[in-house]
Amino acid sequence: MSSAPAPLQLSGLKKSFTVPDGGRRTIIDVPGFALGSGEHLALRGESGSGKTTFLNLIAGILAPDAGSILVGGSDMAALGEHRRDLLRASAIGYIFQTFNLLQGYSCLENVMLGMTFGARADRARALELLDRVGLSDRLRHRPRQLSSGQQQRVAVARALAKRPKLVLADEPTGNLDRRNSREALELIRETCLESGAALLVVSHDPEVLGAFQNVRDFAELNVCLKEAAP
C-alpha cells in the first residue's frame, strides 16, 4: 500500500543574501522539517528572524541556495521558475499579514484569481468559499470597501479556493484587532480542517500561538538563529 507524499518535507535548506559590505549572510539554515497531511503547526519567531523568507522559500517565491523542498512530493528547489510558479499555483495557499488583495478587483475576482493560475477558475467554488467566510453579500465590493477583518477573510477564501494541500500563513492576524484576529484564526483553522490542508502559521503573537496545540520555535529549525544567539 503506498502512502500519499507529505504536503511538506524539506532538508538541508539554506538561503543567504548579500549584505551591504559585499559579504553573504545566511538567513535560513534548516537541516530538516516536515509537515504531515492535515497537520497544523505554528512557528514562533521574532520579527526579522527570517520567517517570511522561510515561507517564501517553501512557496517557491525565492529559490534556495541549497537543499530540497518537497511539496506534495515535488521538489520545489529543483524546479525551474515556471514549474515553481505552477506548483505554487496548484498546491499552496498563501495568506499574508497585509492580505495582499488586488485593490482593483472585486472580492469574487480576488478569490477566483487565487484559483486561476493553478487550476480552472471555479466560480461556484469561489462563491461557496465567500459564503463560508460570511461575505456572500460583498461579492462585488472592492477590498478598500471592506474592513480589515473582512479583507483577511477574503484572503483566506482566496488561499483555500484551489483546495491546496498546504496553506502557509505569515502573521495572518498582524493587522487585525483582537476580535477580528481571533475570528480570522478560527476561520483559517476551520477551513483548513474542512479541506484537510496542512497549515503552517508563522507568528510572534502569543494569542495566535496559543490557539495551536502544535507550536515550535523557528529558532529550533533555523540553526543559524541558534548560532547567532548569545
Binding site: 517565491i61 510558479d85 499555483a89 498563501y94 493560475f117 482566496r158
Partner: peptide
C-alpha cells in the same frame, strides 16, 4: 508581485 505569488508566471 501579488499575481506572481498567486502563481502567475513572469
Amino acid at each position: 508581485a501579488i499575481l506572481r505569488a498567486l502563481g502567475a508566471g513572469r
